[in-house]
């Protein structure tokens, strides 16, 4: 029963790590840059969802749509202001810039949203249901399903729509893609928007389990980055698997050894895994050419 509860928790959190990490993957494959404020985008999803739904009382579908639209906009701003000015010069200062952007966003939200954690009401997280003797919230069972569904949806979108294929073309060969009439800069901007939307979805889903506050994103961002790296930046399916693995290991270590050593053991495992598989567990090494 203890293990089962840990597994459910691990899977639901893991799927969210995976979803957020897919955001890193999306932008990295088209631009070799990532948004280190990704955790802040998770927070933005939760905070805006709360604001639109609870504070402003919009109908839920409208609130979700507005939240994700705002996240997409945030992603576009990140790309335009914090990434492109640096990648265009071949500088990697986008790393610092997105971190600084995250600091600004977190603090700006603290002053507008408030300093207190708020509860995100959800019918699915009110009464626990019995699952083989372990009490779980229905939402915990819904989250991994939604997470996998979104990941699969993303896969279908990429593989089976013209726009998705245009994005894949940019991933594989930006020069040739531009010769096909594909606006590479626009695709990169869209990738950042998509990345922020994925983070926003995760924020919306996770908020009822946790609480909404301006500082909720940081650890999600870092763990998701670890997941993206472990899965291999270039491998979407690897990242989802790594997300589940990370969530499970985290929950199982906590349930067996207590949470004191969770972070130490999980991060040691990350280092060990990378030492053994330098391109991630599911990544592919590029053949070096000289």
């Amino acid at each position: 029963m203890l293990i089962l509860s840990a597994i459910v928790s691990g899977l639901s959190l893991g799927s969210m790590y995976g979803l957020i990490a897919l955001g890193f993957h999306t932008t990295y494959t088209v631009s070799y840059a990532v948004n280190f404020a990704q955790g802040s985008c998770v927070m933005l999803g939760a905070v805006l969802g709360y604001t639109f739904w609870v504070t402003l009382g919009l109908p839920l579908p409208l609130a979700i749509a507005a939240t994700l639209a705002a996240c997409a906009l945030a992603g576009l701003v990140v790309e335009r202001a914090l990434v492109r000015p640096f990648t265009a010069r071949g500088s990697s200062a986008w790393l610092m810039a997105t971190v600084a952007g995250g600091i600004v966003l977190d603090n700006a939200v603290m002053f507008t949203f408030g300093k207190e954690p708020r509860a995100f009401p959800s019918l699915l997280a009110r009464t626990p249901v019995d699952l083989f003797g372990a009490g779980v919230y229905p939402l915990q069972l819904v989250i991994p399903v939604v997470g996998v569904a979104i990941a699969l949806g993303l896969h279908v979108l990429l593989r089976h729509t013209a726009r998705g294929k245009a994005l894949l073309a940019v991933v594989q060969n930006p020069t040739a893609a531009s010769l096909m009439g594909i606006d590479v800069k626009r695709v990169v901007a869209l990738a950042f928007a998509a990345s922020a939307v994925l983070a926003g979805i995760a924020g919306l889903l996770i908020a009822p389990l946790l609480a909404v506050s301006s500082d909720m994103g940081l650890m999600f961002g870092i763990k998701a980055f670890a997941v993206a790296i472990l899965g291999g930046m270039g491998s979407a399916s690897g990242i989802m698997l790594a997300g589940f693995a990370y969530g499970l290991v985290e929950a199982l270590v906590t349930s067996m050894l207590g949470s004191s050593y969770t972070q130490i053991l999980v991060f040691l495992a990350v280092i060990a895994a990378l030492a053994l598989a330098p391109d991630g567990l599911f990544g592919r090494a590029a053949v070096k050419k000289v």
Binding site: L2, S5, A6, L210, F220, T254
Partner: peptide
Amino acid sequence: ADVDMVPQ
């Protein structure tokens, strides 16, 4: 930021 204290 833990969401599950059931094990403890």
